[in-house]
């Protein structure tokens, strides 16, 4: 799934990159929190989350709390590895001065 430069096209799109950036710092994060953090609509976040899920990088869990359904997103082990490799490739491209 990676390009010649080692960049993963599934991750490299800005919204998906931001989703991965948040989830890489947590075990899981709520859909609403991610939407607020990256300031996109529900439909845009859903679309990009689905693309990450289809690539096997993201798992989606729904839980009901106080009669309200909450959606939790988490990077899979493959997703964590892919994001770490993607960031390493970005750093290699940008150079050590960054």
């Amino acid at each position: 799934m990676s390009s010649g430069a080692g960049l993963d096209p599934v991750i490299h799109a800005p919204v998906r990159l931001q989703i991965c950036a948040i989830l890489s710092a947590t075990d899981e994060a709520e859909f609403a929190l991610i939407r607020r953090e990256i300031a996109v609509s529900e439909s845009v976040l859903s679309k990009h989350a689905r693309q990450l899920e289809e690539a096997g990088y993201l798992s989606i869990r729904k839980a009901v709390l106080d009669t309200r359904q909450r959606t939790w997103l988490a990077l899979t082990a493959a997703g964590r590895r892919a994001f770490a490799a993607h960031v390493a490739a970005l750093m290699a491209l940008v150079g050590p001065a960054s």
Partner: peptide, 15 residues
């Protein structure tokens, strides 16, 4: 898609 420098900056800003 972003260039590598902008992509890295976006990751850092988001975190």
């Amino acid at each position: 898609a972003l260039d590598p420098q902008d992509a890295l900056a976006l990751v850092r800003r988001t975190r």
